[in-house]
Design a protein around this nucleic acid. Sequence first.
RNA 1: GGGCGGGUAGCUCAGUGGUAGAGCAUCUGACUUUUAAUCAGAUGGUCGAGGGUUCGAUCCCCUCCCCGCUCACCA
Length: 554
Amino acid sequence: MSSSTDPSHSAALADAKAWPFEEARRLIKRLERLPGGAEKTVIFETGYGPSGLPHIGTFGEVARTSMVRHAFETLTDGRWKTRLICFSDDMDGLRKVPDNVPNKEQLAAALDRPLTSVPDPFGTHESFAHHNNARLRAFLDRFGFDYEFFSATECYRSGMMDATLLKMLAVYDEVMAIILPTLGPERQATYSPFLPVSPVSGKVLQVPMIARDVAKGTVTYVDPDSGETIETPVTGGRVKCQWKADWAMRWTALGIDYEMAGKDLIDSVTLSSRICKALGGTPPEGFNYELFLDEKGQKISKSKGNGLTIDEWLRYASPESLSLYMFQKPKAAKRLYFDVIPRAVDEYLQFLAAYKAQEGKARVENPVWHVHNGAPPTADLPITFALLLNLVAASNAHDKDVLWGFISRVAPGATADEHPLLDQLAGYAVRYYEDFVAPKKQFRAADDVEREALTALSEQLAKAPANASAEELQAILYDVGRKIPRYQDFAAKGATPEKPGVSSTWFNAIYNVLLGEEKGPRFGSFIELYGVENTRALIAKGLAGELVTKPAEG
RNA sequence: GGGCGGGUAGCUCAGUGGUAGAGCAUCUGACUUUUAAUCAGAUGGUCGAGGGUUCGAUCCCCUCCCCGCUCACCA
């Protein structure tokens, strides 16, 4: 609450090295040399293609851009107004039918039409683009990002782009000179920065321009469906720009100051920047982040289904931990797979715990400052997420209550009320248990000796005092095992011929038959937390063969 | 071929112009008469190679090697 008025803040900020600050400083330099930069509203943009759904990369880009925005606002003490535009390129033509949608025939019939003119295969929105735009907005809203949504179709139709489109027409030759050398011979022959929307077929046409009239603001082309020669204004949404030209046009028309992109777009950024200059604009400051790799260091691709989806991440960990992951080393090719999650969570918790004791400079270098827009919550957890995952695996904890029993043993006095964050983590841990631990359990049937032993155990437990402690329950376990020759261990520390030790075979049998595990918790503690009655019921089920893992079927 | 990233302990990775770090793994010990967990400690590195700058380089500069990604058709 009181974080941003720290008097030492400005001094701390001067040489803050975290990358969002470096980015913010570049942005300040840009504004200093940009005509009218001092009064400009600073505009950040992230782009989105609505032929697919938002994914973990979408999150990363918006999260990182927001971090730069916030660093900038802090560094400049709010002297500049800022906006973040999430721009949906929804006038783009539908290139191919996605695999993961219903009503594919319907889409196939609409190929090449602007995405806002393609019927929604889910039947819930005005168009396919509207559908996916809505998904994008819901996605961004879920994380509380502060942004403004822009639709390319609306921008074009509203006339917002007109002035820049006319300028593009005026510098047509220059634009062609920038793009043509980068294309192969076939594409060179047909290339145009303008893609007219056919009044005949409704398609976004990739056709050569056979004439243009700067004074009238028109281009002329041959419509491939009718064979007619058509002259059309470039304004009002009748014409869309081809990709790199489009980007440049958008930057210029909207006055974009900052936009990040993946490193696969480095060349596109360069070309679009040159076009932007030809249009009389100043290309935005940019930042190229690395792409993510999967577990084996392979590129993540949606079609291969490798890597990790954002839903998977959020099933096992918080958005903040993902945000931290995005903050860290944006220029390194990081592997993104399940195992990085617990680490990200624990690092997040560690940074969060450190934050409150830090001051000025250390605070703005602390990732949680960036993750939480300068106002991290105070939290200090008694245990780590990694430990929680171990606990849940060892404790047979199907639900949070059982897990909390184990947590409070490790962290005496901790309660869900006092530690809502830990309670949240416990929920994540239980899911992890259900998804990863439980399916791997291998229960086996008890043999005769084990049946007898477990039956005896159940009987002895029934006689145990109501509030038996873990130690007392543990003693019962030993006493039951001690009477059975298979489990006697005369070599154990402190064993005597009269009172043999109990071998680990006994406990292993318990784990195998009752928990489906090779190893397990200290069983007396387990019974105390799991409950004597529950444990007896578990034994009954085990002996009835209800737990036994069926041979793999399908 | 152009661009980018990486090469640090067995593994996964932090890191800083000034005595090399964490987690996991391994080993030892403590506590539990089992195991898991926990705690204490130990082992373990030519910081990819060579040169340069520097009093001093894992870090900065140059050259090279290896791995990976990416662009060159489309967005």
